[in-house]
Structures are given as structure tokens and as C-alpha cells.
């Protein structure tokens, strides 16, 4: 059923901290690896090897450079606070499990659906006809079509891990979250205001990507903290030592002379 379910209390999703992501691609690789062997695997590749590899990934990590530029309506103090150092920001991009996504409602077959119980957006591969319309409807590039399977593929929020009772409680998290070496990824219920992820979002000003599309992403991004103006304000490294040997003992003067040759 591709009509959207009524708003539910539970909204499972991710919170991604752009302040500490180092762009190592560990989440993307762990995702590919898990989903190659998980319930939905193998995650197909048209061409896994060779000069032009091509295949499906659920998670992609971009890197951006941000050049501070005067923003409209900004005064001098705000500009100063924002700092003047260009920033590099690493930016993982995957399905945001939106609350009102058109990727679900455009699907003609009912293959693309949003779960009532936890808000996870999934594709039922047995129903998908591979019309690709849902991928056109997603602003965030979260859906990749597989020529091999003839169906649409997308992030499952590791639905085959997070409820997996054969795992220890601590392992019931998406593979990307488990893999992140900097702990830039957090998983939880964003519908519960008291959850750790909701508190993090409130505390750090977590935000939505392209809110103007009206899809209401569940996943939130935490903004990078403003960089200190590294070059100019950091303490200067110590100067080269210039010891005055003219007042030193004759022995030291002699050693200095020998070593300075």
C-alpha cells in the first residue's frame, strides 16, 4: 500500500554528527558488507571489478569545502563569530526514512512502503516492477536501481539487525552505526522526545536536509561546530633558540664553535 500510513509515535532513524565525521567511508563499507550477507543480500553489483566498477550502495560519503562568505543580513559580530577559516565537511548520505516521502506515494505497485510500526521505508522486492519512479521522487539520492535484479534497492535501517534476537542487545544497531570509528552516527527513536538521539538533536541543533521539499526527514544532521580561526589565533610555535654563547663558559664556547662548523 503506497498511501502513507497515519503518523506514528515511533520514528526510528539516524543522527549524523558532521562535526566529527572524518570521511573514512567505514559506514558505507560496513553497510555494503552487511547488506551483502544480510536478509536482503547479496547487494548486487553490475560490475564489481575492473576499471569502471558499478554497483549498489545504500550509503555514500561526500566531502565539501565551505568558504565563508558574507551571508545576507549578517552583521560584523555574527560574521566574526562564524570565523573565517574554510571548512572541510564530510557528509554521509543515505535514506532519511522521511515521514511524508513521495518515494512511497508515487509507487504504482505498492512495493515502496513505509512501515506503520516504526516508520522504516522499505521496498518489497517481490512486488517492485523496476519503474524507477521512486528514485526520481527522492531528493536525497537514497535509492539506487539494480540492473542485475531489475528492482529498486535502498537502505533498510538494518531492519534485519535492529530486531534480531540472535544478537546481543548492544549489537542490535545498524551496521553503519556500529562501524563508525568516531561515533559520528547515532541510532534511536526520534519520535520519543526523551530518547538519547532526540536529546542530542535538541542540544546540538540537529536539522533537516532540504526541508522545502516537505518530506520531513526523520534522520537529522548535527552541524559542525564553528572552527576556531586556527592559523591566526592559535599560540605561535616556539622560536628557534638563539642562545647567547658570549657569556657562556669557555668550554661551552669551544663546543659551540666545534659544532657550528
Amino acid at each position: 500500500m503506497t498511501s502513507l500510513p497515519p503518523p506514528a509515535a515511533k520514528k526510528l532513524g539516524l543522527v549524523i554528527d558532521l562535526d566529527i565525521c572524518v570521511g573514512c567511508h567505514a559506514c558505507a563499507v560496513a553497510c555494503k558488507e552487511w547488506n551483502d550477507g544480510g536478509e536482503f543480500g547479496p547487494l548486487p553489483d553490475e560490475n564489481p571489478y575492473g576499471a569502471e566498477p558499478l554497483g549498489v550502495w545504500f550509503n555514500r560519503v561526500h566531502s565539501y569545502e565551505i568558504t565563508p562568505s558574507p551571508l545576507a543580513g549578517e552583521d560584523g559580530a555574527q560574521r566574526k563569530e562564524r570565523g573565517n577559516t574554510p571548512m572541510t565537511v564530510h557528509f554521509p548520505r543515505s535514506c532519511l526514512h522521511c515521514e511524508t516521502p513521495d518515494c512511497v506515494s508515487v509507487c504504482p505497485t505498492g512495493a515502496s512502503y513505509k512501515r506503520v510500526e516504526d516508520g522504516i521505508v522499505l521496498v518489497d522486492e517481490a512486488k517492485c516492477i523496476g519503474c524507477k519512479l521512486c528514485s526520481w521522487a527522492c531528493p536525497y539520492g537514497a535509492r539506487e536501481y539494480s540492473e542485475v535484479r531489475g528492482t529498486m534497492q535502498k537502505c533498510t535501517l538494518c531492519v534485519d539487525r535492529i530486531y534480531n534476537e540472535s544478537f546481543e542487545e548492544i549489537d542490535r544497531q545498524p551496521a553503519c552505526v556500529m562501524a563508525c570509528p568516531t561515533r559520528a552516527r547515532h541510532f534511536g527513536d526520534l519520535g520519543d522526545a526523551d530518547s538519547a538521539v532526540s536529546k542530542l538533536v535538541a542540544e546540538r541543533g540537529g536539522y533537516d536536509l532540504m526541508p522545502q521539499m516537505g518530506y520531513k526527514p526523520v534522520n537529522k544532521y548535527l552541524p559542525p561546530r564553528p572552527r576556531r580561526d586556527g592559523c591566526s589565533s592559535a599560540p605561535k610555535p616556539a622560536q628557534d633558540e638563539k642562545t647567547d654563547f658570549s657569556t657562556a663558559s669557555p668550554l661551552l664556547r669551544w663546543i659551540d664553535k666545534v659544532l657550528s662548523r
Binding site: V56, I66, T67, R82
Partner: peptide, 23 residues
């Protein structure tokens, strides 16, 4: 607006996630 990083300045892609094309 796509990255939500406009508050810091102009956003420019410096490294794509993959070297070859994807879907």
C-alpha cells in the same frame, strides 16, 4: 540547502563518494 551547511558559507563539492559513475 541540500547539505544544510549554507549558514557557514558557500558549499562546494571537493570529493565525490565514488570515482566512477553510479545509478
Amino acid at each position: 540547502s541540500a547539505t544544510g551547511l549554507g549558514r557557514f558559507g558557500a558549499v562546494r563539492s571537493v570529493e565525490a563518494p565514488h570515482t566512477e559513475k553510479n545509478y
